[in-house]
């Protein structure tokens, strides 16, 4: 499996402010890479540097084995599709006219238009002016434009922004189909960390311009032990009893972090000895959001 994007020490400064400073970023062929982080973490700036829309202050970017610079960008961009900071479109033109423009400019076969609009499910709206599209339809048009030439690499910046839950699910399904059905490698960003969990293979988590984790999603989730939930007859009393263990009080139980099997049985016994009944002991895997908060000590918003 070859490497689609390889970044070494990438840095972007605006004046004295460092917006992006990452040591490495690697996207492999055929995967869906989730680029996650809160708003303002540097996701868009990084993606713009990968596409040569922004010049890095320092660092080296290789896309499809070639160094990205002013000389190579045209060749690289021929095999790339992108959607950066929301969809781009001419609102006074129809969906079909917008598609014709991008098809001509990307020198894609005419028949691709029908193909991609069917993929994104816009075939019944092509004669409508884009200004009358809903945000979800604009996003889908944006994706259709990005894949018009079935690029090797697709870079999508927050493609689910502004979509309703059903639209988000559709977008995820769509993205999921790209590597398998069309051989497109996808790098997708989101400020909602959990959103892409179901479809991505590898992730990069960025915060304040720094990559705080990069690698396999499952591995990341394993790196932190699950929390244990005790549902008891008296949560308040349980909470006071285990005060020293930093419990979290919930409506009908308490939550404890980092417990070994031995500790679980030890605390269970302690609770029962106090005369509190235990109804249920559950293992809870943490969401990416929670893991993020845990590793940065802060929320994403």
């Amino acid at each position: 499996m070859s490497i689609m994007i390889q970044v070494k020490r990438l840095k972007k400064e605006y004046g004295k402010e460092t917006v992006v400073d990452i040591n490495s970023l690697q996207v492999k062929e055929g995967e869906i890479y989730g680029f996650l982080g809160p708003n303002g973490a540097g996701k868009s700036t990084t993606m713009k540097m990968l596409l040569s829309l922004v010049t890095p202050t320092e660092g080296e970017i290789q896309v499809m084995g070639r160094e990205m610079n002013d000389k190579t960008r045209v060749q690289i961009l021929q095999q790339t599709g992108s959607l950066i900071e929301g969809p781009s479109y001419y609102s006074h033109l129809t969906g079909m006219e917008n598609m014709k423009i991008i098809q001509a400019l990307k020198d894609a076969p005419r028949k691709n238009i029908d193909k991609v609009i069917r993929i994104v499910g816009l075939e019944n709206h092509m004669n409508k002016k884009v200004k009358n599209y809903s945000l979800g339809m604009k996003q889908r048009l944006g994706v259709a434009m990005a894949i018009i030439n079935f690029p090797k690499l697709l870079i999508l910046d927050e493609p689910t922004n502004g979509l309703d839950p059903a639209g988000m699910e559709e977008m995820r399904e769509l993205i999921k189909s790209f590597p398998k059905e069309y051989g497109i490698t996808v790098m997708v960003s989101s400020h909602i960390l959990d959103e892409m969990e179901k479809i991505v293979t590898n992730i990069g988590i960025i915060n304040k311009g720094h990559m705080i984790f990069e690698g396999n999603l499952a591995q990341f989730k394993r790196s932190s032990s699950p929390s244990i939930y005790f549902k008891t007859s008296n949560p308040q009393k349980t909470f006071i009893l285990l005060q020293g263990k930093n419990p979290k009080l919930e409506e009908s139980g308490i939550l404890l972090e980092d417990l070994s099997d031995g500790k679980v049985s030890h605390y269970a016994k302690k609770i029962i000895d106090e005369g509190i009944e235990i109804f249920r002991i559950e293992e809870r895997t943490k969401s990416l959001e929670e893991l993020f908060i845990q590793s940065t000590g802060k929320g994403t918003l």
Binding site: L51, S88, M145
Partner: peptide, 14 residues
Amino acid sequence: KDNNWNRILALPYD
């Protein structure tokens, strides 16, 4: 308007 600048710069043209 409508974020076209990003797309224009990402087109495979000089």
